[in-house]
Amino acid sequence: MPVSIINSWYQREGYIKSMADLISKELESFSEPAEAMIFFSAHGVPLSYVEDAGDPYKDQMEECIFLIMKELKSRGINNEHTLAYQSRVGPVQWLKPYTDEVLVELGQKGVKSLLAVPVSFVSEHIETLEEIDMEYRELALESGIENWGRVPALGCTPSFITDLADAVIEAVPLATAMSTPQTTSEVADHDPVRYAIKMFFGSFLAFILFFSPMIMAFRNT
């Protein structure tokens, strides 16, 4: 079956503009939009994935933020911004800086208005509705941040869905047949000599199994 793989879409114009649309709209809810810190919170991964396994996630995430901010600046939005990583679990080190630690630092530095942007999340779920909206919001307010806002996940935003559809359409001409390695038995079935040997010994074994009860019964009489 023909298959085409879309390796990434974080840099696609439709995605970038969709994110910029949501951010600019949410900034309007602040009494002083230009003073709000745009806080990108991305899902983290263990540091070993990046440093040892060579996962490009960190570089892609940073480029994604750069492109979103570039789009916002083209619209006259020049707010300060930062990127941090959330949702770490276990004892191993994950990508830094950590969202919870950065929120505390921003509060200590005197940031009063903050707009949280769940980037790398495309739908609402526990890591946005509970982790960001409840845990991080509470932490931010406790740390001195007074005005909190949060950009919704893209979900089924028409411009985002249209861009994903365009990505699929663009990838269709590149589709190629995906082959799967043949098993030893499949190779044997396509080799006439091996197939004949296989059938001979299979038939011989079936003959022995079929007639062995009769032979044993004959010997016992």
Rank of each mutant, 00 (worst) to 15 (best):
M1W: 08
S4V: 05
I5M: 15
I5R: 14
I5K: 14
I6R: 09
N7Y: 08
N7D: 08
W9H: 05
Y10L: 10
Q11M: 07
R12M: 06
G14M: 08
A20H: 07
I23S: 08
E26T: 04
E32T: 00
P33M: 03
A34K: 12
A34M: 04
A34I: 06
I38D: 01
S41F: 05
S41V: 13
V45G: 03
L47I: 04
S48T: 13
Y49K: 11
Y49C: 06
D59N: 09
Q60C: 00
E62H: 13
E63N: 05
I65Q: 03
F66Q: 02
F66P: 06
L67E: 03
I68P: 01
K70E: 14
E71V: 04
E71M: 03
K73F: 00
K73A: 05
R75N: 00
R75H: 03
G76W: 06
N78E: 13
N79G: 11
E80A: 12
E80C: 09
L83C: 10
S87T: 12
R88I: 00
V89N: 02
G90E: 10
P91Q: 09
W94G: 07
L95K: 06
P97N: 06
T99Y: 08
D100G: 06
V102H: 01
L103F: 13
V104I: 13
G110K: 03
V111P: 01
K112T: 05
L114S: 06
L114M: 15
L115C: 01
A116N: 10
V122M: 00
V122W: 04
H125G: 15
E127W: 01
E131V: 12
I132E: 02
M134K: 15
E135A: 06
R137D: 07
L139R: 14
L141K: 14
L141N: 09
E142L: 15
E142Q: 11
G144S: 12
G144T: 07
I145G: 02
I145F: 02
N147I: 00
N147H: 04
R150D: 02
A153I: 05
C156H: 03
C156L: 00
S159I: 00
F160C: 02
F160T: 04
I161V: 15
I161N: 02
D163R: 05
A165E: 14
D166I: 07
V172R: 03
L174Y: 14
L174C: 09
A177L: 11
Q182V: 08
Q182E: 11
T183N: 07
S185T: 15
S185N: 12
E186I: 04
E186A: 07
E186M: 07
A188C: 10
Y195I: 03
I197E: 12
K198A: 09
M199W: 11
F200V: 12
I208F: 15
F211E: 12
I215H: 08
M216D: 12
A217R: 13
F218P: 00
R219A: 12
T221K: 11
